[in-house]
Design a protein around this nucleic acid. Structure first.
Lengths: 257, 257
DNA sequence: CGTGAATTTGACCAATCTCAAGCCTGGTGG
DNA sequence: CCACCAGGCTTGAGATTGGTCAAATTCACG
């Protein structure tokens, strides 16, 4: 692992072509399940069956909840378009964000065990998801072994991702955490065919701080520090990484500030 | 969730009878996979097929590695007896412990996605595991749907557990973290039919500190503090919880110290 | 332009770490 | 059986990172 932290890594196996704008417009082709099956030799019949299940779409406007903690678990959701955050709520009020998810990533896997959703999932912008009824998916597993295998990879990948966050929260100082966060976003946008160096933050400083267990003030100070170091330019929520290699070194702890 | 933190929760669905000493002596009956299938109506035939796969046992002496990061992923392991820790290694030297596992719990699920183990697994005492070759398990999935469903629950449960640790590392002060750690151990021993109030720590202060992202000194001070508060008694690595309700309140943050 | 929310910046504070010393404890050899 | 040693643990004092509080600034948007 050259990159120690891997927040929510893209769910796409490496080697997969990045999504094109065309993909974003046609059917459910950005759904994780479908994506994941393309490179592993599902035949056309299988694809059709998969599509029959995941065809249902649902729009979620900015700020609205896709599901909330306590809801019965019925479906997994693959993000077709947009961004989400997942968070758990403590005692009245305090929330802890457990992940930021983008196009092609999957929501709801943590609910399989208890059959109840463990967190809220909120759209950070107007978004659209594919609903995948889990019981139907399970049926399909028996018919399409490849699909099952990919599903296992996704679950396992989520476990690995969370271990990365544990590592980050557990043993990185603030600057390293934040750098790792930015590097992670950058890679995930790159995989999706967007710029790795310039992107728009869909979440506010407060949400970033919450996720990284830092205060909003710390995030702000770190942004200023990175700006001064000429690692990046900031225009409100637009980030422009001017020295990605250095940012990576900061994230890795190789370069102390 | 009354108990906010759920480190490595027991993998047994609630309502399952705790393991008896008898269980510990007969065959592979403590393997997670087997355990998990008992209450969900696997018939005898299925059970036999499962046993054929998981029959292979392996002893791991204290301090030895079951697998190490980078090893190719071949099997999952269910702990038959003993305790393990899993940890990732940073740059030369530093390690971050990601979990402590006990009898009946499963190791290796994080390796499915990459087909390479992501962490080292070391025995904290002389231990014994059942080896479950994953490819054979996959074959069995198609024959025994119930088994597959249980497997998904286990994966999902691991995701939930890690979210709990994220919550813990992200938003709890030191005393709360350590209390949560002890409450968690206590519950897991209770489920296994051991005393909830008195148990032996298999890991040193340093390992606890590493897991909770606290220094060894902090752990030591917290032990002293809890002793003074008459929440517990400590004799070396033997913990005796004298006021579990209060410890729970500290863990929950209800009772500030 | 005006208004409230989000962000930035500064000064100070507190939780936790670091460093350093001393203390048990269990194992070993005389 | 006892003394000694090494490793792990405890305790104290001071340093640091990141948090808190407060004020100033900028931005989004009507």
């Amino acid at each position: 692992m050259t990159q120690i932290v891997s927040f929510r890594n893209h769910s796409t196996p490496s080697g997969m072509p990045p999504l094109s704008v065309h993909d974003l417009r046609t059917g459910c082709s950005t759904c994780s399940m479908r994506e994941l099956c393309l490179p592993v030799g599902l035949d056309n019949d299988d694809m059709v069956r998969l599509d029959q299940i995941i065809r249902r779409r649902r729009r979620v406007p900015k700020g609205h909840l896709l599901y909330r903690a306590g809801d019965p678990f019925v479906s997994l959701y693959a993000i077709r378009l947009g961004h989400f955050k997942t968070y758990q709520t403590h005692r009245e009020g305090t929330q802890q964000i457990t992940g930021f998810l983008m196009t092609g990533e999957m929501l709801g896997m943590d609910a399989i065990s208890s059959e109840v959703h463990q967190c809220d999932a909120m759209a950070l912008e107007d978004s659209e998801v594919c609903e995948i009824p889990f019981s139907q998916l399970e049926q399909l597993f028996s018919e399409i072994p490849t699909l099952l295998r990919q599903f296992h990879r996704m679950m396992s990948h989520e476990i690995t991702r969370e271990q990365g966050v544990m590592l980050l929260l557990g043993s990185m100082p603030a600057d390293q955490r934040f750098a790792a966060f930015l590097v992670n976003l950058s890679s995930r946008y790159a995989v999706r065919g967007f710029s790795a160096s310039s992107f728009h933050l869909r979440m506010g400083r407060e949400e970033i701080g919450n996720y990284l267990s830092l205060t909003i003030e710390s995030i702000s100070r770190l942004l200023s520090k990175f700006k001064k170091m000429e690692i990046l330019k900031v225009d409100n929520r637009t980030i422009n990484i001017t020295d990605l290699p250095r940012l990576r070194r900061v994230a890795a702890g190789t370069e102390t500030i």
